[in-house]
Nucleic acid binder design. Structure first.
Length: 461
RNA sequence: UGCCCGGUAGCUCAGUGGCAGAGCAGGUGACUGUUAAUCACUUGGUCGUAGGUUCGAUCCCUACCCGGGCAGCCA
């Protein structure tokens, strides 16, 4: 007999004489004549209540069904006589599959997120993390749905890359050389010509450059995969391994890019609302009281747009005293981004056309010669969630920009070929999947929206 | 990496220069419909580690380790 997921039991439209429930005990309440056992199987936030009568032949099993134990129950699905639920299962047979003794770390009481991080292998059994990872799964699906329904092709850009200087952050080296005795060149340096790939290789920090190659052939493409940054960042918004979505569109400028980013974020918020309503309600009650209103607000209004130059004026007119005073040419600090998204625009805002000195070499230079067609989408509570740009499609200007960033065009032959042969205006962006999840769930720490977080000094699992 | 806060029972925390505390969890018992059930009783400690000050340190000092917050870097 096939098990019925708890989600299906709870949404039943009629009683059933014979159902099989399999799952993990969340809590058990005993009285003299019977026990109530709440079983959760991850299919939804709520568990199903099982009634085990003390006269059952299997009743001695109940004493082994402690919080955390895995059990299976066969019985009748009936309308509940109690108040808290519509349906419940009256057990006919009950079997403990795997006991959980007193050392089981998850209790019925709430735990701190810090403690749960230390038991990353067990935390998906908690309400919060079950909900987080259901939403994560659903939104991963919604990402593909969004792009596929618009004719974008999914490109698997490489995880291991030989491009070592994209300027997107520190890289993790990939090597099979003996770290104690690597082969050396005559100059005494490590000889990577003898390494597995016969050259230095790294984990990717972005699939953008490779996505551009495919966009200049297949027009509209996207990547969705893991990326790696070896930065020693210790904040609630950074991880060393995270997932990024990077669309890249040929025949598209910065404005088309912004339009896509806005539709994309709205699609994902709407999808979560529609398909993860119970989980979002849980976040609204226990994680972030203002979540529901904020998500509504995001769906209801167009995202605001403002140039970097206007942003600097807004910051300097604000009357605020900044810890880091800003003038044109400076990077926007966290306090500035927060002010723009949380206080001035009070919602998502896209800041665009940054000074070229602040941005990577590949962004398209504007006619003013001092700004580039860059955009950052800032959201309340998190800050930057998307970074993107129109790419420089003009070969001589791209080569000049590379030299200005102290990069050698010779190292980027294949990338420059994309401009040498049939170049087109094109644009794209990167969205941090975990940051989006933080925004949609209200969870405040990136470590709590990744199954097994990798941060500096932490890769225990 | 810098600054700040913290580390006491399985968990969440209180506490004091002089015998180590509570709630929850666990155990035992009670209870005929519970909802993180309730009630009674009860087990449980290298007070992060190493030095130092002191008659005496969980408490004060120093270093280190671990966790968290913020900042930088970015997504």
């Amino acid at each position: 007999m096939q098990r019925t997921p708890v989600k299906a039991l709870l949404s039943a439209t009629q009683p059933s004489d014979d159902v099989l429930v399999q799952g993990w005990v969340r809590t058990r309440r005993d009285s003299k004549a019977f026990s109530f056992i709440e079983i959760n199987d991850g299919s939804c936030l709520k568990g199903v209540q099982v009634i085990a009568d003390a006269t059952l032949p299997d009743y001695p099993e109940v004493s082994r069904a402690a919080t955390g134990a895995s059990i299976e129950v066969r019985g009748q699905l009936v309308a509940s006589k109690g108040q808290g639920q519509q349906w419940e299962v009256v057990a006919r047979t009950l079997k403990v599959l795997g006991e959980a003794d007193a050392t089981y770390p998850l209790q019925k009481k709430g735990h701190s997120l810090e403690f749960l991080r230390e038991i990353a292998h067990l935390r998906p059994r908690s309400n919060l993390f079950g909900a987080v990872f259901r939403v994560r799964s659903r939104l991963a699906f919604a990402i593909h749905e969004f792009f596929q329904s618009r004719g974008f092709l999914y490109v698997h850009t490489p995880i291991i890359t030989g491009s070592d200087c994209e300027g997107a952050g520190e890289l993790f080296r990939v090597s099979t050389l003996d770290p104690k005795a690597p082969p050396l060149t005559p100059e005494g340096k490590v000889d990577y010509a003898q390494d597995f790939f016969a050259r230095p290789t790294f984990l990717t920090v972005s699939g953008q450059l490779e996505a551009e190659a495919f966009a200049t052939a297949l027009a509209n493409v996207y990547t969705f995969g893991p990326t790696f940054r070896a930065e020693n960042s210790n904040t609630s918004r950074h991880a060393a391994e995270f997932w990024m979505i990077e669309p890249e569109m040929a025949f598209c400028d910065l404005w088309g890019n912004m339009d896509l980013a806005e539709s994309f974020v709205k699609h994902l918020v709407r999808d979560a609302r529609e398909h993860c309503a119970a989980d979002l309600e849980f976040f609204g009650n226990f994680v972030d009281k203002g979540l529901s209103a904020r998500l509504d607000f995001v769906l209801d209004r167009p995202f605001q747009r403002c140039s970097y130059t206007e942003a600097i004026e807004i910051l300097n007119r604000s009357g605020r005293t900044w810890e880091h005073p800003v003038q044109w040419g400076d990077n926007l600090q966290s306090e500035h981004e927060r002010f723009l998204a949380e206080e001035h625009f009070r919602g998502p805002v896209t800041v665009h056309d940054y000074p070229r000195t602040l941005k990577p070499f590949y962004m398209r230079v504007n006619d003013d010669g001092r700004t580039v067609r860059a955009m950052d989408l800032l959201v309340p509570g998190i800050g930057e969630i998307i970074g993107g740009s129109q790419r420089e499609e003009r070969l001589p200007i791209l080569e000049e920009a590379m030299r200005a960033h102290h990069l050698s065009p010779a190292d980027y032959g294949w990338y420059l070929d994309l401009r040498r042969y049939g170049t087109v205006p094109h644009a794209g962006f990167g969205l941090g999947f975990e940051r989006l999840l933080m925004f949609v769930t209200g969870v405040g720490n990136i470590r709590d929206v990744i199954p097994f977080a990798r941060t500096p000094g932490n890769a225990a699992y």
